[in-house]
Structures are given as C-alpha cells and as structure tokens.
Amino acid sequence: MPGRFVRVWSRQLADHAADLHFVSSGRVLAAATLAGTVTVLDASTGELLAEPTGHPGGALSLAWSPDGFLLATGGQDGRVRVCRPGGEPVFETPSGRDWIEHMAFSPDGLQLAVGAGRTARVYDRSGQLLADQGGHGSTISALCWMGRRLVTACYGGVRLLEPDRPVAPRFLEYSGSILALVPSPDGKWLASGNQDGSLHIWQVESGAECAMSGYPMKVKALAFSDDGSTLVAAGGSEVTLWDFSGVGPVGRKPKVLEGHAGAVTAVGWAGHRVLSVSEDGTLRSWPASSDRGEVVWEGQLPLDRLAVAPGGVAAAFADRSGNMSLVSLDER
C-alpha cells in the first residue's frame, strides 16, 4: 500500500489527553484533558474551533454522535455534558460522585450510553434517560455497542442489554478484571483486554469463550480491523495480530510485531496498517504484508493516546504532557 504518514501539526493541550476522537467526517477532532478542558480542533490545521464547557477535576471521556452533530463529554465531576461541535450546550446531567470514564453513542446515533460507577445509563439525544441499569458488581470498566445491544464490562463479567426492549440482560461470566472491550464489526466476536495480561474472546451467539494469556503486562490496547479479519492487541512492547477469519483465533498463533522499546499503550487500524504508540515515545506504522514497522514519529515523552480518522487517512496522538500531534497519509 502506497503512502507514508507525515506530520501535519502539533499543539499543546491544557494537560494529558484522557480521551481523543475524530468525528466521522475526519475533519474535526476533540480531546478531553485532565485539566478539565474539552478542546475541539480542525484536523487539517490544528486550529482551535471550540472549547465547550469542561469538567472540573478532569475531563475523562468523550464521544461523537455518528452524524457528527453532538459531542458528549464526561469527567471527574460525575457529569455528562452534550453539546454541538461549536460548544453550544444541548443537555447536561447533575454532577455526581462517580467519575464518568466511559461513553459511546449507539451506531444509529439515537442513544448515548454512559458508565457511571456501577450503573450504565442510556440517554436519548435530548437528554431523556432511557435506561438506568444497575446491578454491576463493580465499577464499569469498559462499554461498547453491538448493534442495538449495549455491552458493559466490569470485574466478574460482561453484560449485554437492549435498552429499548424489556428483556433481561445477558451475562457472560469472566472471573477477572476487564480493562478494554471491542466487538468485531460483524458482531460475531467480543474481545476483552485484561489486567492479568490476557485476552478473553467470546463468540457472542454461542457464548463459547477462549483466553489468550501470557502477555507480560496488562492488556489495554486492542482493536479489530475494519473487515473484522484481524484483532490487534498489546500488553507489553510487542504488538500481536490474531487471525479471526473463518473459524476464528482458537488454535492459531498470533503474528508478533517487534520493534517498540517500551510498552505499547494504544493501537489502531489505518486501512490495512496497524498503528501503535508506546512508552518509548514513538508512533509506529506496520504494513499488513510485512513484519517491519516504520517509525512515523519519535518524541521525548511516552505516548499514550491514539485516534485514527475514519478511512485511516490521518491519526492523532498525544504524549504524557498533553502535547498532541497529527500525522496524515501522504499518497504521493
């Protein structure tokens, strides 16, 4: 695949970026910082477009609606704020004791799911509470949508619930601490990265499960490729690729990509390439057909946030101090 990633701009955020996402058009991106600020930037120039009201104590999470008309943020103040991309407020919830660390819009954009302590709440676009799902045994540590189903993870397992249907949640038990959760694009698989240095995989309909253990560190970085054929995961300095085509990963060995000199902190897909950022301060790009990654960016401080623009044409990342950069695919 032709083209190389080249740096377009860098800018200093108010503090460490706790969350970072492009809007679906790829033209705009937003960052939530531990200083409490929320920053909306022009992806092509890095110019500040808006600074919506933030979250005292620290902004921790953000989500764009798929149509790009709404930006939701949450933070240490326990509040959810939803605004327009220009910062005009749409609704906010009361503040609370539980940090808002995880949120996601449903694929149809009609529902916003939020993890608040041990409760998952679902709001519509005007802020009306559609579901208030308690019963989690510990703080919700990850959440995602699979079609109309909301999937939440906490210590002890994963819940699948349908907020707009009165059916009991389905529970997939897992005796461990889940740190990250990703569904395959076709909804067939669910993968979790865990504190104990393992991946856990569920075949959603059958409930069949398997574990891949042996990562030297906790597994927080994982992402499915757009076509669902490959899961990239890291828990240490190596990047592993698991083949999910056909019968799935059971019995297969992962492809291991070596090159980072420190723990990999985030991964993503840009088309057929894997992108990874690491404590070693580098962003690496790994072409699909090769074991050799190239260093796209090298900085002084550990990198730990990565967002890839839809279509894989650009990626934004930030270091520990909140210095953020954007690289874009130069096809010439």
């Binding site: 660390e101 601490s177 104990d196």
Partner: peptide
C-alpha cells in the same frame, strides 16, 4: 479483585488502579 493467576492470596484493589492510574 482476585488476580487470575492461580495465586489465592493475590488480591488487589481495582478502584485504586483505576483512580491512581488517572
């Protein structure tokens, strides 16, 4: 949280990992 590594007395505080990690 009990760590899933077979060591019965290896329990940790998940809330501390989460909060101090931030």
């Amino acid at each position: 949280f009990e760590m899933n590594n077979g060591c019965i007395c290896c329990t940790v505080r998940g809330d501390l990992i989460r909060i101090l990690g931030t």
